[in-house]
């Protein structure tokens, strides 16, 4: 187990959103304000870590054929916990995220990591993987929220930065989500290809 390498994978080389292109639905829908992005990112991080731990712990008891169903049951359990917690403690965020919290059940990042990592590795490594991938997801969400909220609505966390008549409203619409995400993916691929080239030329 190598925490540094897993963190690098989660943030950069295997970033769930920008490289694996998973969890697009929530990424598109909720990245219109920083508060939403943070709420969603942290929820996914917690659910991902916990479900990874449980799945890694029971992975040897579960028959291969019903593993997907089992993953979903475990994930749905944690999603319900987090959903109820959000509604109890931060009702404003729970209201603005709406249906996207329950939808984490079918978020491909969590199912993908369960299938690709937790089902094959130990409990500790899976927990670290959950944290790292969760951080990678949250960071990308926050970057997208930052760009879309600042340029699209002219505010940051509700505080007005750009006067009201200037912001490019289109960026808060779904079109803007696709544009920003596309630009980020392109930038990421460019950066990854560049660092790869550098390593090869060494």
């Amino acid at each position: 187990m190598n925490f540094g390498r897993q963190l690098k994978e989660g943030l950069l080389t295997q970033n769930p959103v920008l490289v694996q292109v998973l969890g697009m639905c929530s990424t598109m829908a909720i990245t219109t304000s920083i508060a939403n992005g943070l709420g969603m990112g942290v929820s996914v991080l917690i659910i991902l870590t916990l479900s990874n731990i449980v799945i890694a712990a029971i992975r040897k008891l579960v028959p291969d054929k019903i593993r997907i169903a089992m993953f979903i049951v475990v994930i749905a359990g944690f999603v319900t916990c987090v959903d109820l917690c959000l509604q109890a403690f931060v009702p404003a965020i729970a209201a603005s995220l709406g249906v996207f919290i329950p939808l984490i059940v079918v978020n491909c990042i969590i199912l993908g990591r369960a299938e690709a990592f937790a089902y094959k590795n130990g409990v500790l490594a899976s927990a670290v993987d959950g944290i790292c991938q969760g951080i990678g997801y949250t960071v990308v969400l926050l970057i997208m929220c930052f760009i879309r909220e600042l340029l699209g609505a002219g505010t940051l966390n509700g505080i007005r930065i750009i006067p009201e008549q200037y912001p490019v409203g289109m960026l808060t619409l779904p079109v803007g989500g696709f544009l920003v995400l596309g630009t980020l993916i392109a930038t990421m691929q460019w950066a990854l290809a560049r660092s790869k080239n550098k390593e090869e030329s060494k």
């Binding site: 008549q165 289109m170 079109v175």
Partner: peptide, 8 residues
């Protein structure tokens, strides 16, 4: 179209 969507 972009301008119309942003600055109706």
């Amino acid at each position: 179209a972009f301008l119309l969507g942003s600055y109706a």
